[in-house]
Amino acid sequence: MRRAFIPSTDLVPRVEKGEPFAVARMISRAEASSSEAREALGALYRKAGRAHVVGVTGVPGSGKSTLVATLVARLRAAGARVAVVAIDPSSPYSGGAILGDRIRMQEHALDEGVFIRSMATHGAMGGMAHACLDVVDILDVAGYDTVLIETVGVGQDEVEVANASDTTVVVSAPGLGDEVQAIKAGILEIADIHVVSKCDRPDSNRTLTDLKMMLKDAPPRDGWRPPVLGLSSLRGEGFEDLMDAMARHREALAGPGGVARRRAIAAFRLRKTAETILIERFRGREQGSVDALAARQQDPYAAASELVRNFTGEKADA
């Protein structure tokens, strides 16, 4: 039996009603980034903006998944409907992926108020999945109050999640580096909330102290000073503080500091979308230049300028 194709625009009203099948299918359309879905995704973007989008990032093994699973339970207990976008890496060789984040979220498997979607990075950079921003909009319109984005385990400068979320939580674990790690540029700078996980371990105080020392003299960003919170998913401790900090940060964003943040997120979104459209148009057309480039008969600057010129109609050297 060949399946019937449901047009994406027909899915939009069903997404608004929160139908799990329609929400899931719309997410697949966003991932496929077909031009057929653009009108529907555009309509969803205009309807979205109600949910609190919280990015959770940190190095591999820092305890992100376990933290997210517990956080979902606490947010549900407080009455919120919660969606999780769980991102895992794609294989650089086959392009395939094993998405295992659901295993840690089994207690929410039958809860109607929880929607979990696993995504593979598919070559996207920054610990994020391609189309993650569209997926967040879909879940927002479907009526989830909080959307948690759990990034892949990242290194030190994969900071794109901060351009996708209202509130960015950076998870650090004890025992992963000395105090110099804490003053390096990169991922630690994007945190709106710092969490030190595994605070049931004796060396966690050292990590907490290092982070607090680093942040002591940092100027507030958009009128907000990132708190440093200790947390133990094992013992279920510290989650009230985390939820309180999330709520306070959201309130702060409603003020003047939030305007700059929203503009930055919108600018990032615009650039990303333009990139997607351009790359799609270039695909398959660069073959001649690639051969000349590989043979070093042409240079990448001239070849790329010519490729762009063919689309924009600009004069040479423009």
Partner: peptide, 20 residues
């Protein structure tokens, strides 16, 4: 095997119910 064939594989772990 499926990952190496380029597929995205969601694994949900042991002891699930049909509903889950």
């Amino acid at each position: 095997t499926l990952r190496d064939a380029g597929m995205d594989v969601v694994y949900t772990g042991l002891h699930r119910t049909p509903e889950e």
